[in-house]
Design a binder for these strands. Structure first.
Lengths: 127, 127
DNA sequence: AATTCACTTGAAGTACACTTTAACAGGAGG
DNA sequence: CCTCCTGTTAAAGTGTACTTCAAGTGAATT
């Protein structure tokens, strides 16, 4: 069992953020010791990594909340949870497509700068 | 020359957002008519689309501000602006890599759900 | 002339996800 | 015993990017 400090060192997530996630119901079953201090096990670490992956891909806190709520409901919600993940997967794929689309525009801009610089170079030689 | 309303219809960007971008210095040379109302030309539209692409790829307002400031300085800042775009291109590529990395985790989760569902199916048949 | 409409401004408000603060508690080391 | 360290809580604060509001202007329609 790990203390919150050990978890911050392993996951590089700030302690207030871990407490915030727990308070918002994003981390089910985090235990406490006899003094009320948090103790994390391997399963808690898995949850932290999973929540981090969802956040990093833009899932809002409220949606993760809903997912964890369904998880706590048990096996009867498996298909709904799977649907949530399928939907989120499509969102991520859309984000990736959008990024590629806009990356094209940046590359176009960079190509223009190449042209501009070579023009300036030629002009300089003439002078 | 287009009014702000026409630009909102063409770009689907809200008028307050266009005013906000202009106030923050993200849109150089937006003209006004004799009554002080905004008039946008093709070049303004290009800027709007460019700013939108930068925002959509996560560039902060402050950095776009700096870019536009350099643009206004003239040709002497071309290499610095090009560097900004090169750096941003790398950021976008990193974002795309991160999204793929986390998409893998979501796909792994989905694979687990497939296993779970087929298990439940087999159990149901047995009952 | 009065209303309506599209615009203007500065300032305040909102949403989201943390982050910081204040006040306190319990155990360890000097 | 005192201080330090690590933890606890609720509440307030922060940063970013808008978004909404209040008050006003000027042109056009009824």
């Amino acid at each position: 069992m790990l203390t919150i400090k050990e978890v911050t060192e392993i996951t590089e997530i700030a302690a207030p953020t871990l407490r915030y996630y727990e308070k918002e119901g994003l981390l089910p079953h985090v235990k406490r010791n006899e003094n009320g201090k948090r103790l994390y096990d391997e399963e808690d670490l898995s949850w932290i990594y999973f929540v981090t992956a969802l956040r990093a891909t833009g899932m809002p806190i409220a949606q993760i909340q809903k997912y964890v709520y369904l998880y706590k409901e048990g096996d009867s919600t498996i298909s709904e949870r799977k649907l949530m993940m399928l939907y989120h997967k499509k969102e991520i794929e859309r984000s990736i497509r959008d990024l590629y689309f806009n990356l094209d525009k940046i590359n176009y801009k960079l190509a223009l700068y190449d042209v501009l610089e070579s023009q300036i170079e030629r002009t300089s030689i003439k002078i």
